[in-house]
Amino acid sequence: MSIQHFRVALIPFFAAFCLPVFAHPETLVKVKDAEDQLGARVGYIELDLNSGKILESFRPEERFPMMSTFKVLLCGAVLSRVDAGQEQLGRRIHYSQNDLVEYSPVTEKHLTDGMTVRELCSAAITMSDNTAANLLLTTIGGPKELTAFLHNMGDHVTRLDRWEPELNEAIPNDERDTTMPAAMATTLRKLLTGELLTLASRQQLIDWMEADKVAGPLLRSALPAGWFIADKSGAGERGSRGIIAALGPDGKPSRIVVIYTTGSQATMDERNRQIAEIGASLIKHW
């Protein structure tokens, strides 16, 4: 067993022997301040990774656009098919120029040779490549099948209805392509620590998230040296922004954090800054 596999296998073990965790309302004060600064709703939840206990939450059962955070769930569904012998990570998928959609920095470079399922998941999570996500959605049967996968996990809230990039439209009061912070946090925890996926697939999923290259201005910008984070960000229309993450000190994750916002007129930089400040408060009061 590799060191990384050992780390993920012992996530519940280490967490069980940690000192009790206590909620700190100071972080919620910052979440509410972010709402004021952005002029928009902000949803927040913080779960203990081992027990699933909610440590703090704000608007945990209000719907927010998922945006690209759905790509972690998508690759979880792909990995479940791999575990069941219905898919192979090494299978190569070929596609054409007509398949390319807006923001496809990886797939646009491989029109000639195609990409493997493993490479597509890596591109979808680490670079948020939209064509990679659409190609992977095709392998599982489309958005409705991802929703069905989530329902089978016990998540009857999260739903995907459309493809990239239309799913980022974020129309107010439109339930399409949305989740709730509580539902997303619980589902992410199941994917990373539950028995739904094999140990190898859980490790692969967290490795992809740990290698995320496009979430630097968010929670990662607030992390002290030595902290662990595996995350996936999302951005959408109407001032929408979000991030889902597993993080913790001492090089291992111990909490799940989900943050979503929508309806702001603020710039992307300002949305990023507010999420980073929430992260800084979380870490300060850990």
Score class of each variant (00 low, 15 high):
M1I: 07
M1W: 01
S2K: 11
Q4F: 10
Q4Y: 14
Q4K: 12
F6H: 08
F6K: 11
R7S: 09
V8P: 11
A9N: 09
L10R: 05
I11S: 07
I11W: 12
P12L: 12
P12A: 13
F13A: 14
F14N: 02
A16H: 15
A16V: 14
A16K: 06
C18F: 06
L19R: 08
P20K: 14
P20L: 02
V21D: 05
V21P: 05
V21K: 06
F22M: 10
H24V: 14
P25D: 10
T27D: 04
T27H: 06
T27L: 08
V29S: 10
K30E: 07
K30H: 08
K32D: 05
A34N: 03
A34V: 11
E35T: 03
E35P: 01
E35M: 04
D36S: 13
Q37V: 15
L38R: 05
L38S: 08
A40C: 08
R41C: 07
V42N: 04
V42K: 00
V42G: 01
V42R: 00
G43C: 03
G43F: 00
Y44R: 00
Y44M: 09
I45Y: 10
I45H: 05
L47Q: 07
L47A: 09
D48H: 07
D48S: 08
D48P: 02
L49M: 15
N50D: 15
N50R: 13
S51C: 05
S51K: 09
S51Y: 08
G52A: 07
G52I: 03
K53F: 10
K53Q: 12
K53E: 12
I54N: 06
I54T: 11
I54A: 13
L55I: 13
E56Y: 05
R59V: 01
P60C: 12
E61G: 13
E61D: 15
R63W: 04
R63K: 09
P65S: 05
M66A: 07
M66S: 04
M67D: 10
S68F: 00
S68K: 00
F70E: 02
K71N: 00
V72A: 08
V72L: 05
L73D: 04
L74H: 00
L74C: 05
L74N: 01
C75Q: 01
C75E: 01
G76D: 01
V78A: 06
V78S: 03
S80K: 14
R81D: 05
R81H: 10
R81W: 06
V82L: 05
V82M: 06
A84K: 11
A84S: 12
Q86I: 12
E87G: 05
E87K: 02
E87C: 07
E87T: 08
L89D: 05
G90D: 14
G90E: 15
R91L: 05
R91I: 04
R92Q: 09
I93A: 04
H94F: 13
H94K: 14
S96L: 11
Q97P: 14
N98I: 13
D99G: 06
D99L: 08
V101F: 07
V101A: 10
V101I: 10
Y103R: 03
S104Q: 02
S104R: 03
P105C: 04
P105H: 06
P105S: 05
P105D: 04
V106F: 07
V106P: 01
V106M: 12
V106L: 14
T107S: 11
T107L: 08
E108T: 09
H110D: 05
H110K: 13
L111T: 12
T112Q: 15
T112Y: 15
D113P: 07
D113W: 07
D113C: 09
G114T: 04
G114P: 03
M115K: 03
M115L: 13
V117F: 04
E119W: 02
E119L: 03
C121G: 05
S122Y: 14
S122R: 13
A123V: 07
A123R: 01
A123T: 05
A124E: 01
A124H: 00
I125D: 00
I125S: 03
I125C: 08
T126H: 06
M127Q: 12
D129N: 00
D129I: 00
N130L: 02
T131S: 12
A133H: 01
A133E: 00
L135I: 14
L136H: 01
L136K: 00
T138V: 15
T138F: 10
T138A: 15
T139W: 06
T139M: 10
T139K: 08
I140M: 07
I140D: 02
I140N: 04
I140E: 04
I140F: 06
I140L: 10
G141R: 06
P143H: 08
K144N: 14
L146A: 06
L146G: 03
T147H: 07
F149G: 04
F149K: 07
F149D: 05
L150S: 06
G154I: 02
D155C: 01
D155Q: 02
H156E: 10
H156Q: 14
H156I: 12
T158Y: 01
T158R: 00
T158H: 01
R159I: 06
D161F: 03
D161W: 02
R162P: 01
W163R: 10
W163M: 13
E164H: 01
E166N: 13
E166W: 15
E166K: 13
L167E: 03
L167S: 06
L167Q: 04
N168P: 02
N168S: 08
E169H: 11
I171E: 15
I171G: 12
N173T: 14
N173E: 14
D174H: 04
R176I: 05
R176L: 08
D177I: 01
D177S: 02
T179L: 01
M180T: 14
A182W: 13
A182T: 13
A183Q: 12
A183L: 07
M184N: 01
M184R: 00
A185E: 00
T187H: 05
T187N: 11
T187P: 00
L188Q: 03
L191W: 05
L191I: 11
L192W: 08
L192T: 07
T193E: 14
T193G: 15
G194T: 15
E195Q: 13
L196K: 15
L197F: 06
L197V: 05
L197R: 05
L197H: 05
L199S: 10
A200H: 15
A200V: 10
S201R: 06
S201E: 02
R202Y: 05
Q203M: 14
Q203E: 15
Q204I: 10
Q204R: 10
I206W: 13
I206A: 14
I206V: 13
I206M: 14
D207E: 14
W208K: 01
W208F: 07
E210D: 09
D212R: 04
V214K: 08
A215V: 04
A215N: 05
G216A: 10
G216H: 08
P217D: 14
P217W: 05
P217E: 10
P217F: 07
L218H: 03
L218F: 04
L218C: 05
L219T: 03
R220L: 03
S221L: 10
S221Y: 10
A222I: 14
L223R: 05
L223V: 13
L223D: 01
P224E: 06
A225V: 13
G226R: 10
W227S: 02
F228R: 07
F228Y: 14
I229S: 03
I229C: 10
A230C: 14
D231W: 03
D231R: 03
G234R: 00
G234S: 07
G236P: 00
R238E: 08
S240Q: 07
R241G: 05
R241I: 03
G242T: 02
I243V: 11
I244D: 00
I244E: 01
I244L: 09
A245Y: 01
A246V: 13
A246Y: 11
L247G: 01
L247Q: 02
G248A: 03
G248W: 02
P249A: 08
P249F: 04
D250A: 14
D250P: 09
D250T: 11
G251S: 12
K252S: 13
K252M: 13
P253W: 07
P253L: 10
S254E: 13
R255S: 03
R255D: 00
I256N: 01
I256K: 00
V257R: 00
V258N: 02
I259R: 00
I259Y: 04
Y260R: 00
T261R: 03
T261H: 06
T262Q: 07
G263F: 04
G263D: 06
G263W: 04
Q265C: 09
Q265Y: 12
A266T: 13
A266P: 04
T267F: 07
T267H: 12
T267S: 13
T267Y: 07
M268T: 08
M268L: 10
M268S: 07
E270Q: 14
E270H: 10
N272R: 03
N272A: 05
R273D: 10
Q274H: 12
A276C: 12
E277M: 10
I278G: 00
G279N: 03
A280D: 14
A280K: 15
S281C: 12
S281N: 12
S281A: 15
L282H: 02
I283G: 04
K284A: 13
H285G: 09
H285F: 15
